[in-house]
């Protein structure tokens, strides 16, 4: 997994609440047996017309907005456990998703793929949406070590929470399997002791 330290980027705003994993990546795209190519179908039904042409009114098709930070309305990633949603977000090039609330399984899946979910207050989120409405090139800075997110339009900063273990994993580019494999002896001892 790639290391994550700090990131300053323009943002892609998606001010919709309860964006579920069927919107992030519809089920009919889950037939692949590897992790590649899901970014092309990120938000497929919002992004493309039936004939595959881009829908002009969707934010990913609007050249005003770009960057590696997705900013979304509250309760992002609800629904299915499909890790394909995290693969689609990472595959498209997003490294951070900012929202005021995330669904549990999505949050885990994102972290396991080096995508950082950043939980901000409803007020901060609303200010970011307002700022990007005024200036599409506004940037956010996310600093994982210090657990801060800054709206560079206003200079306003907020701290965000992240599990200390997951933070270490991201800072060092390690994953859970490495950790669990190192505990094989303990697992076998647990099985015997039951």
């Amino acid at each position: 997994m790639e290391k994550f330290l700090t990131l300053t980027s323009t943002i892609v705003p998606l001010p919709i609440e309860n964006v579920d994993t069927d919107q992030i990546i519809p089920a009919r795209f889950l037939k692949a047996t590897d992790k590649n190519g899901f970014g092309d179908n990120l938000f497929a039904d919002w992004r493309y017309n039936k004939d595959g042409s881009p829908k002009a009114d969707f934010v990913l098709n609007n050249s005003l907005y770009s960057g590696s930070i997705l900013v979304a309305g509250k309760n992002f990633g609800s629904g299915s456990s499909r890790e394909h949603a995290a693969w689609a977000i990472a595959g498209y090039g997003f490294k951070v998703v900012v929202s005021s609330f995330f669904a549990d399984i999505f949050q885990n899946n994102a972290l396991n793929n080096g995508v950082l979910p950043v939980v901000v207050s409803a007020e901060f989120l609303s200010e970011v949406f307002n700022a990007v409405n005024t200036d599409s090139k506004v940037t956010l800075t996310v600093d994982l070590q210090n657990q801060t997110v800054t709206n560079n339009a206003s200079g306003k900063s907020e701290n965000f929470e992240i599990n200390a273990y997951k933070k270490e994993c991201l800072l060092n580019g390690l994953d859970d399997i490495d950790y669990l494999l190192s505990k094989r002896d303990m697992i076998e001892a647990y099985e015997v002791a039951r």
């Binding site: 890790e83 396991n112 273990y165 399997i177 669990l180 505990k183």
Partner: peptide, 22 residues
Amino acid sequence: FGIGTSEVEMVLATQCILQTRP
């Protein structure tokens, strides 16, 4: 509970998973 594919791999490899207590 439901898990992602990285976690499926963890369970296949170690019969364990890392979870924060809800």
